[in-house]
Structures are given as structure tokens and as C-alpha cells.
Amino acid sequence: MGVVEWRFEADDLARLRFAFSPMWELVASLRVLRAPARHSVHLAWLRAVRPRLEAIDLSELFALAPTYGYMADFLTPPPDTPLPDFAAELARVRLTSPEKASEEAGWVETPDTRSIDRFRADPVGGVQRVADTLGAYWELALAEFWPRVYGLLEADLMWRSRRLATGGATALFADLHPLVRWERDRLITTGTWCHSGEPTGDGVVLVPSAFRWPDIATMTEPYQPMLVYPARGVGTLWEAGPPPAPGALAALIGKTRAQLLLSLCHPASTTALARRMSLTPGAVSQHLTVLSGNGLVARRRLGREVLYRRTATGDALVSSS
């Protein structure tokens, strides 16, 4: 059993940040495909995508990201913005140096040594080939479902950010995962390998994940230090559609506005709500304006985004319906 330990100075804690990554979700989903019993929460997704995958050869990706143990880090570069898009992350994978890709491929333990040998024999072509496969796999397996996953990850990110703001690191890490703990000035995770040091670069990035559930993952130097943990509410991810609007509430304010109000159990942006509700951002914005004008939701700016949340009046209306 290994331990990864980061020692934090005051400025390291100030540089702690959150982000999420469509590329990380995509690569993590490769393990879900091959170990469905361990990831039973995603069975609905598996049933939907498996018939589509007969048209694509995933053997090289499976070799680089085996079911257990180390997977090549270049496949999942730490997100460099809070909300990266898949195209930008795929471009970063394509820019991986052949030397780094070959070295990391050599660290992978997999029974498919033929695929690893092929990749290392021509890492320049291998990186481009793997990037092409990732792009095709994204279109077949995750692009359609990304708005739903995005909404879950965004809700977790907002909840954790509030925990950090109100209770500091102790509150943030108290229930992040059983294998993660905060001790005075140290962030400690238990896993399969060892590392000890101070966070480098821009500090530690905390990345909620749907497809990594129920495990954690860490990445250290020479990459940006990163801790991946299961997002809250993964068990509800594949529930169909937005929450049903109670009849009385829908009759009072309309079905769509009732569903929006119910969806705001956690703060969310207009974009996330539009994806979750299968509406245009403009339509969501109009409904939010009405709800805000009647004191049922409030808005708050967080960086470049505006987040909406239910007010106490909105909570009372939902609970009474």
C-alpha cells in the first residue's frame, strides 16, 4: 500500500483549485467498459453504448489504460482551466512529446504487450493514432451524454467550493473519500504508489469524476499535481430527464419553471441548466428571470460564470408542494 503526501504552505492552500475534464471521463470510461461489475452505477450507459462500439478498434487504448494499475498519464493531462472542452484537451494529447509517450507506455503493465510494442516502435504515429481513436470514441460513447455528466460535475464543484470557503481544508477533505485525509498542513491519499513533497506549479487541482467512481486517482510531477475523486450524486446520473414537477407546483408556476426550481437544489449556471433540461440557454434565461423576479432564485457571480440558486422562499415552495 502506497501513500501520496503533499505538504502545504499557506500559499499552496490559496492555490488549491477545482476543475473537471471531459478527457479524464472518457479515459476512465474505458475501465467501466471492461469491468462493469465494479462500476454497476453506469450500467444504463453501458447498455446504450456497447452496441455502437463494434465499429471502432479500442485495443490500443485498452492497452494504454488497463483495467487496473497505472495508465499512461499523457492520455489525461491535468485540466488547465476550470471548465475545459474536449477539443482543447484532445489537442493537448496530440501535442504530447513522442519521448514522454513512449516512456509512459513502457510503464504500463498489460497482457497486451503487442499493442504496447507497436506504440513504442513509432510513438509519433502512436500518439496521433491514439488521439484519433479518442476522438472517435468520444463521438460514439460520451458526446451525447456529456451535458448530463457536466451537470453532475458542476454541481459537485460548486458544493465543494462552498465547503472550502466556509470551513477551510478540514471541511473540504472531511468527506471527500475514505482514502483521502487532511492532517494539519498535509493532504494524504492512500493508493498503490508513494510520493512525498510540496505542490509544484499552480498548486493541486481537485477533479470530481463520474466514471472514476468508486476510486480516487492522483497525478504528480512532472505533471500538475492532481487528485481525482468520485463526484457526489453519481448514483443519480442516469436517471432519465429532469426531476418531475409536482402537479401543484407545475400548476402554480408552469411545468418548465417548476422543473428548473427543482433542479436548483445545488447552484448551477444557465448553460448547465440548459443542457440538463434540453432547452436553449435563452429559454432558460427567460424562465430564470421570472423566477428571480418573484424571489424564488438568486444569482451570484463566480469568476466568469453566473450561478443561480434557490432562495429560502424557493426552498419553502418546493418543500410544500
Rank of each mutant, 00 (worst) to 15 (best):
L157C: 11
W107K: 13
D202G: 10
W138P: 08
T133E: 01
V127D: 03
R160A: 11
P178D: 12
E198I: 11
V207T: 06
V130C: 00
L157D: 08
R118E: 15
R160D: 10
F86R: 01
G167T: 12
T192E: 15
P123K: 01
P98E: 04
Y137F: 15
S97C: 10
P123R: 04
P178I: 00
V204F: 07
E103K: 07
V130T: 01
W159H: 12
V108D: 03
S97I: 12
Y150S: 09
L134N: 03
S115T: 12
G201T: 04
L187N: 06
T190E: 15
V130N: 01
P214R: 05
A136N: 09
D215G: 07
G168W: 05
V149L: 06
W138G: 06
A105I: 07
A155Q: 12
E154N: 07
D175K: 04
F173L: 07
A171W: 02
A88W: 02
D215H: 12
W138F: 06
E99C: 09
A171T: 14
L134E: 01
V127Y: 02
L152Y: 04
C194L: 10
T190V: 12
R114K: 14
E89K: 04
L187Y: 08
F119M: 03
T166H: 02
A171S: 14
E144C: 05
L95R: 14
T166R: 10
G168V: 07
G135T: 12
V108P: 00
W146I: 14
I116Q: 03
P208K: 02
P214S: 04
H177T: 06
T200D: 09
F86L: 14
A105Y: 03
F119R: 03
R186F: 08
T96A: 09
G126I: 08
V205D: 02
R212P: 10
R94G: 09
L157V: 11
P147S: 04
T189M: 13
D156T: 13
V130W: 00
G167A: 11
P82S: 03
S196C: 14
W182A: 07
E89R: 02
P123H: 02
L157Y: 03
D175E: 15
E144I: 09
I116T: 05
L176D: 09
